[in-house]
Structures are given as C-alpha cells and as structure tokens.
Simulated assay, not measured.
Amino acid sequence: MTTKTKIPHALACGIALACALALIGPTQTAHAGSVTQPGERIGLAAGAPLPQGFYFVDTTDFGGRTPPSHETVGVTIPVIVWATPFHILGAQVQALVAPPLVEASTPGFHAQGWYNPLIQGQLAWNLGDGFGASYALGAYIGIDSPVADHSSSINQWGALSYTGGGYDLTASVIYGTQLDSRTNPNFLNLDLTATKSFGKWSVGPVGYYSTDLNTPYAGYRKQSQFALGGLVGYNFGPVILQTYLTKTVSETHYGGQDTRFWFRIIVPLGS
C-alpha cells in the first residue's frame, strides 16, 4: 500500500476537511459563509478510492486580505482517514474525522481556537480507465469557541477525478446546509485541480470558487469569490508534500482580495 504506484492515490479521498471562520470584531460581525474552507480540497484526487488503510493528512494555510478588510487568517486541518475494506453499491467505504484549528485577526482584534470538528463518511467508485467518482455525507459539529460557528451544519461532497497518465484532473463540489438558518447562509464551493506528475514532482494550475446560497437575515450581504493559483508537490514515497499559492481574482462583499499560501503533508499509517 506504500508503493509508488499507489501512494499518489492518497490524494484521493475526500480528505481534508474542515474550516472557514466567523470573525467577530468589536464593531461588526463578518461571517465567512462557507464552513468548509474554500480551496482546502485542491491537490486531492478526491474522486478516486484509496488503497485500504489509515492515513494522516494535515493541510495548513495562512493569508490575508487587501484593504479595507485587513483580515489575516491561519488554518490547520489535521485529518485521520480510514479507507475500509467494505463496499456498498460497488463503492469503497471511507471515513474521516477532522478537528481544525483557526487563528484570525483584524486591526485591534485577535482570536484563536478550535473550529467545528468534522465527521464524515464517503463512498468512492473506481470507474476504470483512470476515472473515479465519490460522494460524501457528514456534519460539522457546532462548538463554543471564539473562532467557531456555534451552529452545526450538514455537508455533502461530490467529486470527479481523472488520474491516468500521471494527471490529477479533479473537480470537487461541496454543498453545505446550516442547521441554524437564522445566522449563517447555506453555501456552495468548487475546488479545481489540474496537475501533472514528472517523476516524483507534480505541478499545475489550481483554483476555487465559493458562494453563499441565501441571505439568513435582513441586511446580510451574500459573499462570493474566485481564486487561481499553482501547486507544486513532491512524492518522497511514502510521504507526499504539497504547496500551493492562491490569489483572489474576483470577490463580492469579502472586503478585499485574499492571497494565501498552503502546505500539506500526506502520511500513510499502514493497514
């Protein structure tokens, strides 16, 4: 399970995932609509099933928005994944848990702590000829933290991947439903990966889009954004490292363009 032909599939699970945040400043409340952090599934061939076993994946990112926002946010998302030996409807059953950590600041304000933990189950199909598809259902659990949503939410993830010929061509769609619809909006994310492996290296363009789907209360301004960037990865066999840089090219009601650096480590833990 740790051979070089299999380890790239460690990019496959709907791993990675959990986080955005609600920043509460001294004079205003600005809610980032997406509970799942936009861009966090970049670089993961999320449509393909994993080789059986356990995996540790950690995705860390840090960035800030241009004025007038002046927001800076750092996120760490450790994930434990179990690719089980069980199958349902021809799909491999996979499960994950993720307890994210968030640090956020604006001028005159700083907060850090645990973010809403994610529990999720996934079905992943090998469609043949390098194609795969997956569907995941899970929930972010509301907790009492200065950087968390106190509301729980249901998340549905779907992904299509092509991993033939050293490529990772993946589109991941995340649909979130807030259980407390009075304070937070439902949301839709789209994470995109188009990388190619050259020996142990992988490189290519990436991007993401996110948007609020409703206005939970009067005066709420729906947010949306689109970002592009590039990814570089290296397969040490069995450990995989990835870095990518993204920058907002358009946004609505986020108060500035976001530039963000990401780092990921993927470690197979054995059967």
Rank of each mutant, 00 (worst) to 15 (best):
M1D: 10
A12G: 13
A20T: 12
L23Q: 14
P26R: 11
T27V: 10
A30S: 10
A32C: 09
S34C: 07
Q37G: 15
P38E: 04
G39K: 03
A45G: 11
A48E: 15
P49Q: 01
L50W: 06
G53F: 02
F54R: 07
D58V: 12
D58T: 10
R65S: 08
P67F: 05
H70W: 04
V73A: 09
P78C: 03
P78L: 03
I80T: 00
A83F: 05
A83I: 08
F86P: 08
G90Y: 05
V93F: 15
A95E: 07
V97W: 10
S105W: 06
H110I: 08
W114F: 14
Q122R: 13
A133I: 07
S134W: 11
D144S: 04
A148S: 02
H150Q: 12
S152L: 04
S152H: 06
S153V: 07
Q156D: 04
W157I: 14
L160V: 06
Y175K: 15
G176M: 11
T177V: 13
Q178D: 15
R182K: 15
F187M: 03
L190M: 13
D191V: 13
K196L: 14
K196A: 12
S197R: 15
S197H: 14
F198Q: 08
G207A: 14
Y209I: 14
Y209N: 05
P216E: 00
G219H: 02
G230Q: 09
N235R: 15
F236N: 00
V239A: 03
V239L: 11
Q242P: 09
T243A: 03
S250P: 04
E251C: 02
E251W: 01
E251N: 03
Y254V: 07
Q257K: 15
F263W: 10
R264G: 12
G270V: 00
